Amino acid sequence: MSVLIVIPARYASTRYPAKPLVHLRGASGVSKSLIRRSWEAASAVRGVDRVVVATDDDRIRTEAESFGAEVVMTPVTCHNGTERCAEALRDIDAGYDMVVNLQGDAPLTPAWFVEDLVAGLEKNPWAELATPVLRCRGDMLASLREDRAQGRVGGTTAVFGAGNRGLYFSKEVVPYTGTDYAPEAPTPVFHHVGVYAYRPETLMAYPGWPIGPLETLEGLEQLRFLENGRAVLCVEVEARGRQFWELNNPSDVPKIEAMMAEMGLD
């Protein structure tokens, strides 16, 4: 099983321009760019044959190459990270069995999230792609709800059915529970972790599929798979005491830095 990790990164983010170049301070005060921290997270995954950064911007390329990352330049016309991964794979064309999209805004992604994801797709031949989901504790669910109350998108939630087959993903908090939970209590809400493992043939077909109304409304690339009848596997992963949050808004920087300090991560 040969595995390629692609880290898609663009400069012109609507919500947070230049996000990949934003610096995050670790527990001991070490400051590194978001793209570097994402690359280090990808490089820590076992069983991976190659890690590349896929971008359309020379500033991101310069930063990535400064710390030794391999960079593949992709068109500015890519609509999302999955299309950018497809362009990178087309450029590399090296016959990998699986392609992992570790998005460049998730520096706290533990290696075992990706390892479990790859194993899950390998064990479920019916699935065309797999993505991790993390059961929310009460405190994480409260953060998601607070972001929505303030008009911010703080994360994506996932709903899945029998066999962990994905049913829907939303920037709203779903399913509705109408319940408050203690900070450490498990909840029935699952946080979608922004990582994907694709079968190469599915990834290469993706840019040619029509963009449907749900993808348009939610702005979530994974909905294109569901709207085109493709089977998505949701792999439940364990936090193992690690906190997880994605960098979606400027207000997430101090939140992630505080998590890194608490966990002793540099």
Rank of each mutant, 00 (worst) to 15 (best):
A12I: 02
T82M: 08
A142T: 07
S28R: 14
A64G: 06
V45P: 00
T109E: 08
D266L: 10
T77V: 15
L24H: 03
Y198P: 05
T62M: 14
R242Q: 15
R37S: 13
M1D: 07
V114M: 02
M73H: 10
A54W: 01
L233K: 01
R137P: 00
I35F: 05
V53Y: 00
A127M: 13
S143V: 05
P210K: 14
R199W: 15
R25G: 12
N101Q: 04
V51C: 03
G241H: 14
W112D: 09
V6T: 01
P183D: 11
D252Q: 13
V193S: 11
E257G: 13
Q243I: 05
D97T: 08
Y206M: 09
P125S: 07
A18V: 09
V232W: 00
E65M: 10
G47C: 11
A106I: 15
R165V: 14
D91G: 04
L21K: 12
E87V: 01
H191C: 08
E201M: 06
R148W: 14
D147S: 08
T202D: 05
I5K: 00
A111I: 07
F225R: 03
R25C: 03
A64W: 01
M263E: 14
A9Y: 03
A54I: 07
G26Q: 13
L4F: 11
D180Y: 04
V100H: 08
S170W: 06
A44E: 10
D252P: 00
M263Y: 13
V114F: 12
A42I: 01
V173F: 02
H79M: 15
W209Q: 01
I92H: 01
R59G: 03
A142W: 02
A239C: 12
Y96M: 09
R90Y: 02
G138Y: 09
L102W: 06
V189I: 11
E215L: 03
R230S: 04
A119W: 06
A185K: 07
L121C: 09
V52R: 00
T216S: 01
E246H: 12
D58R: 00
G229N: 12
E262K: 03
G104N: 04
G178Q: 12
E122N: 11
F67S: 14
T177R: 08
R15G: 03
F225L: 09
A41N: 15
G208F: 06
K171H: 12
A94R: 02
D49A: 13
E172H: 10
S38R: 00
A86P: 00
I211P: 04
M98W: 01
P207N: 01
C85T: 04
A197Q: 06
